[in-house]
Amino acid sequence: MNPTPPTAAPAAAGGRRPGYLYHKVASHLAANPDRMLTVGEVTNAISAPSTGAVFEALKKMAAAGYATHLTGPHRFQITQAGIDAAGTMPPPAPRTPRSGSSSGRRQPVTRPNGDLYFPRKLAGATDVDVLRRLRDKRIPVLLYGPPGTGKTALVEAAFPDLLTVAGTGDTVVEDFLGNFIPLPDGGFEFVYGPLVTAMRDGRALLVDDATLIPPKVLAVLYPAMDGRRVITIPGYRNERVEAVDGFYVIAGHNPGVHGAILTEALASRFDVHIEVTTDWDLARHLGVPRPAVEAAIALNADLAAGRVSWAPQLRELLGFTRVSKTLGPAAAVANLVGRAPQEDREQVLAALRQRFGADITPLTLGKQR
């Protein structure tokens, strides 16, 4: 049997060689050098079967400097380097050191706002990796834990194509599906909501504070999440919307927030429930003073025991550090007391006084100098 020539590449699915889709994507951008193109526009133009695969190819181009990448929505435009590359695949990126390697810490992931997220251990991997694997298998995840523990930051780090619905008691179906907006000429135009956009573009959708949303409103998600992956828009000609590959729903739940109710209908839609707590070692690594971390740990023990209804999490500790650098430690401690609910203030004061000294009061305006 003759060996395969070393120059022959294995065929991909459908008899196509690896890089076939990437070359089509790059060629289409090169044919439209003056345009910013959305993922959906590129997918339709090249008749690709998967918006998610096109998005991955576009991100690969952007990472190599072959395309400019803008968000809100995601748009791409070829660069001169991309034109010069003539559709060839970029060289492989350097591998990120694994946990436990000589680097000692998994490399941080940049969120859309430019802040860094430091991945944490989960199920034998990192939280970012686990969420991406669950998305690949279409397994919905519910993240739960106190506000400020990093649930939203984790999802943003895992999914750069993320869209978000911020849940409140006033959230309505139109916040998911879209609504008519007035035009300057007196007419109206229907603007699709984040659920529709995520389904059509194969993007991830975070329903933040999902348990604050009325159950009747949340029901709009269910047919998009089950085997049907189809919804209709009653307010716009009963238009039918089908989810393409890459579409994914993830939700956040804050159990201790007033009005948050996790119904059986909602809980059963998410096959994986992950508790998100504050990483105290990370807080120290990010420069939070040790006394503040120790006070927060003690208050969180009180929170778990039901003795208080609030305790500072990573968000408050990072805020403490910023205020301390700007106004000084005394003002930062006083401000942390002021952030506590009135009913918990004495316990918070006691924990802070034990570690920072007795002369602590909430940050309050005094007399004129």
Rank of each mutant, 00 (worst) to 15 (best):
G186L: 15
T211M: 14
G187L: 03
L183F: 02
N238Q: 12
V217A: 12
P184W: 01
A219R: 09
A158E: 01
I139L: 15
G187W: 14
M225C: 04
R133Y: 07
A153L: 07
D208S: 13
P160Q: 01
P119M: 02
G227M: 04
T164P: 04
N238A: 14
F176L: 04
V173R: 05
P234A: 06
R138C: 01
I213M: 08
F176K: 01
G202A: 13
R132L: 05
T211C: 05
G150N: 11
F188C: 03
T232Y: 00
L205G: 03
D115N: 12
T164R: 15
G186R: 12
M199E: 07
P140T: 11
R200Q: 15
L154C: 08
G124P: 11
F159N: 01
G227D: 11
G124Q: 14
L177I: 08
T168F: 03
G114R: 07
M199V: 08
V141M: 13
A198T: 06
K121G: 04
P140A: 11
G150C: 13
A204C: 15
P146D: 12
V220S: 00
T197A: 15
D127R: 04
A210E: 02
R228Q: 03
D115A: 10
A210W: 09
K137M: 14
L162G: 06
R132K: 15
G145L: 00
I231G: 01
I139V: 12
I233A: 01
N113C: 08
P182R: 10
G150M: 13
K151I: 05
I139F: 06
F159I: 02
A204N: 05
K151M: 04
V217N: 03
